[in-house]
């Protein structure tokens, strides 16, 4: 791939051919405000906030504009600023002013864009305010959908389509009535949604937000214990309790993605009924035992049942390496090919 040089607001930057202007700007640490763009997804060009002027001539959107050698881009042209500002003002005029209690507060892209383009109370007060009052969809056990906060960037729709191939949601209705909807506008829990939460983490506002939970005091980097994939996670910890999980962007295995269990299924860790020691059956009753006692018991019983009497069923919750060892152990030590695997979570 060859490299090209473009100029953004007088700054010469180099970019790879095939990049969009927005990608090139981001790769060079330049901020062009945007709402519907997400690095993991194909550009949609719907929010119109990343509007720029190309070669002092054409007003267009930077997220779909391929870089070209010698291209001159202005993000501060007065006409560009005007369109961008009005567009953001329109979004805010139709957005609930509940920032302080909002899940997305301080990480909200709409807030960021609003600050950047210079929204003031005076500029907003010129507008007729109107916020939708669609009831919250709380049907999903892990996250809620608030259509009233939705800015219709479509990131959730594209995530579900391009990344997850589930297509549980899409656009419905038209005009101001348009909204992101499941098939037949049923509650999300009745749709084909698998609750992976990939859309939730990408939502730039809090139209999709995890059910109210405590914020962590610190994060611990770990590996998800659910299956052999071994996704990288950051456990959000408060005191000695886990209050949240997020995918590790740096982990080469999952690059930030998680499934429903890894992302939302962490409450078992602090569950009072969770087993914390081995149990050994004595006189028909399971009683707590030490690891040494338990392992000794296993050695004893296994030695008595070598050969075709024995079968091993391995779990998808352990690593591939451990699964390998189980079959090796079953064949080499127990002397049988009776080995199977549940092969699913």
């Amino acid at each position: 791939m060859s490299s090209v040089t473009i100029t953004i607001d007088g700054i010469k930057i180099s970019a790879e051919e095939g990049m969009t202007v927005l990608q090139a700007a981001q790769a060079n640490g330049l901020y062009i405000p945007n709402l519907c763009n997400h690095p993991d997804l194909r550009p949609a060009g719907l929010c119109r906030v990343c509007v720029v002027k190309q070669d002092d001539w054409k007003i267009t959107i930077s997220c779909k504009l391929p870089v070209k050698e010698g291209m001159v881009i202005s993000t501060e042209d007065p006409a560009v600023q005007q369109i961008r500002k009005n567009t953001v003002e329109l979004l805010i005029a139709n957005h609930p002013m509940t920032c302080l209690t909002c899940e997305a507060d301080s990480k909200c892209e709409l807030q960021r864009v609003a600050h950047y383009v210079g929204i003031t109370p005076d500029s907003i007060n010129r507008y007729r305010r109107s916020v939708r009052s669609i009831p919250l969809d709380t049907s999903n056990p892990f996250f809620d959908i608030d259509h009233n906060k939705c800015i219709m960037c479509g990131i959730c729709v594209r995530t579900c389509d391009e990344l997850q191939n589930i297509n549980a949601i899409d656009y419905a209705q038209r005009g101001v009535a348009s909204l992101i909807s499941t098939l037949g506008n049923k509650p999300i829990a009745e749709s084909r949604c698998e609750s992976c939460g990939e859309c939730v983490v990408r939502c730039p506002v809090a139209a999709l937000a995890t059910k109210k939970s405590l914020q962590p005091m610190r994060e611990v980097r770990s590996i998800c214990s659910y299956c052999g994939v071994g996704c990288g996670i950051h456990l959000g910890v408060r005191g000695d309790k886990i209050v949240g999980v997020r995918g590790d962007q740096e982990n080469p295995v999952n690059r930030g993605s998680l499934c429903v269990k890894g992302r939302f299924g962490y409450r078992f860790i602090n569950h009072p009924e969770r087993l914390t020691t081995p149990l050994v059956k004595k006189d028909g009753v399971l009683v707590e035992a030490s690891w040494d006692e338990a392992l000794d018991r296993i050695v004893e019983k296994f030695s008595e049942h070598k050969g075709e009497k024995f079968a091993a069923l391995a779990s998808a919750r352990i690593t591939n390496e451990d699964n390998y060892l189980i079959q090796k152990f079953t064949r080499a030590v127990m002397g049988t090919n009776n080995i199977d695997h549940c092969a699913r979570l």
Binding site: M152, R174, G175, S178
Partner: peptide
């Protein structure tokens, strides 16, 4: 136009609504 906007882009979806409201 407000009713017939497809609703995908902000200036048309919310702009026509705002113009109409005014």
């Amino acid at each position: 136009t407000e009713i017939e906007s497809c609703g995908q882009c902000v200036p048309c979806r919310l702009g026509t609504k705002q113009l109409l409201d005014i």
